[in-house]
């Protein structure tokens, strides 16, 4: 992150150098504390059940075992969940961007008649909301969206913060290009599609990723609106696996053979966690810079 690099060379006294070392150690420990739990779970998912119960902590299992992964592969539900999540995320993000950019563009134009009125409408939604119950009744009883994908897509179609980030970016674009194509007879829609959107790829990437990660990680909406098990998303299924497992620990009398085999054991829990985490970690290196950029665009202008 060259942008943040603070290139000041302070003349160091011995005390100063000690503090400097302590700062490095503290930041390093913090970074270590963030990754250790992931490594622990990753290592555990490849370990045998015996090793997991005997040894308290290891980063490399002594016997490498794929049993846990075989179990969840055979079971298959977490993969079905990942498929559903992918579908929800892709379509959901497209809907988010469509609604957010088309709202942001008129609000970015100083000659749009209702600009102030609609901007105030947006700000009010940031300050006050009807709450969970009226929204739930709207989606379930009035719009009848329960057990449809629309229940996961529509209620959060425009996030006010994200929309304002896009609007601010549009406002920062040089006006000359838009004006030139306007003089060439382009309509506002053509200017939006052919001039404004292509210039806005960085902010669309950032905000698109904010939305996408939100969809991928969402649990509550799926809990509220989806109870058809074939539509379960990955987060719901992971949660179910964890719950099953913790019940199995307390309820010894549970007849697991009737439910098709052994209870989800520790390694299976870990493997399921890994499988649900990996997709986001695989794309993380690519999305990281867009996220930081997006936060900064929002921070500087919001």
């Amino acid at each position: 992150m060259a942008l943040f690099h603070n290139d000041n060379k302070i003349k160091r006294t011995p005390g100063d150098a000690t503090i400097q070392v302590l700062i490095y150690i503290f930041v390093g420990l913090f970074a270590l504390a963030t990754v250790m739990p992931f490594l622990y779970v990753l290592a555990g998912s490849f370990a045998t059940e015996a090793e997991l119960t005997e040894k308290r902590f290891f980063i490399v299992p002594s016997v490498f075992s794929l049993n846990a992964y075989r179990f969840i592969l055979k079971d298959g539900q977490i993969f079905r969940g990942l498929g559903n999540s992918l579908f929800v995320t892709i379509i959901g993000t497209i809907i988010n961007l469509l609604f957010s950019t088309t709202l942001a563009y008129p609000l970015a134009r100083s000659d749009f008649r209702w600009r102030n009125g609609i901007t105030n409408m947006v700000i009010i939604t940031m300050l006050f909301s009807g709450g969970m119950i009226p929204s739930y009744i709207l989606v379930v009883n009035i719009l009848h969206l329960k057990n449809t994908w629309w229940a996961l897509w529509l209620p959060g179609a425009v996030n006010a913060f994200n929309m304002i980030i896009i609007k601010n970016y549009f406002q920062g674009l040089p006006k000359e290009l838009e004006e030139a194509s306007h003089m060439d007879g382009a309509t506002d829609l053509q200017i939006f599609i052919k001039v404004v959107l292509p210039l806005s790829k960085p902010v669309l990437a950032s905000v698109g990723l904010f939305y996408a990660v939100g969809h991928w990680n969402a649990y509550f909406n799926a809990l509220l609106y989806i109870d058809n098990s074939s539509m379960y998303v990955a987060q719901i299924i992971l949660r179910n696996i964890m719950n099953q497992a913790s019940q199995a620990e307390t309820d010894e009398k549970m007849d697991w053979s009737a439910l098709g085999g052994a209870p989800p054991s520790k390694a299976v829990k870990m493997a399921s966690t890994v499988v649900a985490t990996v997709p986001i970690l695989v794309v993380y290196p690519f999305i990281q810079k867009f996220f930081t950029k997006g936060v900064m665009v929002g921070a500087v202008k919001g």
Partner: peptide, 10 residues
């Protein structure tokens, strides 16, 4: 970037 469900399970 990790969901709360994953954080809870870890």
């Amino acid at each position: 970037f990790v969901s709360l469900v994953i954080v809870a399970s870890i």
